[in-house]
Amino acid sequence: MDKKITEEDVIKIAKLAKLELTKQEISRYSMELTEIIEYVQKLNTVKTTGLDPTVSVNGLCNISRSDQQIDYHQTPASLLGNVPRVKDNFIQVKRVIE
């Protein structure tokens, strides 16, 4: 099976991942991704009938907390402290165009 990751694929994925790639990068990622995806192709030769995908490697399930307020000892100021632009306690971002 041909598993070449074309430059078009790379452009499409970069768009999904919000990355801006130069022409050279697009061509390089096309090669690198192809190399890696070809390497992992051997998974498709493995018989896995009757097996479920792993969802919890250490077998835990039903881990939850009770519905109580938790004081994490954080102030809004400490959280907003890392925000590049704050306006009236809001996080300011470039305008969202619908």
Partner: peptide, 22 residues
């Protein structure tokens, strides 16, 4: 992003998690 993208999830991510079970 490639292995999770539409059309590839089963072939890569899900398959890998199943081989992981094996």
């Amino acid at each position: 992003s490639y292995v999770l993208s539409s059309g590839y999830y089963d072939a890569y991510y899900k398959k890998a998690q199943t081989v992981r079970t094996k």
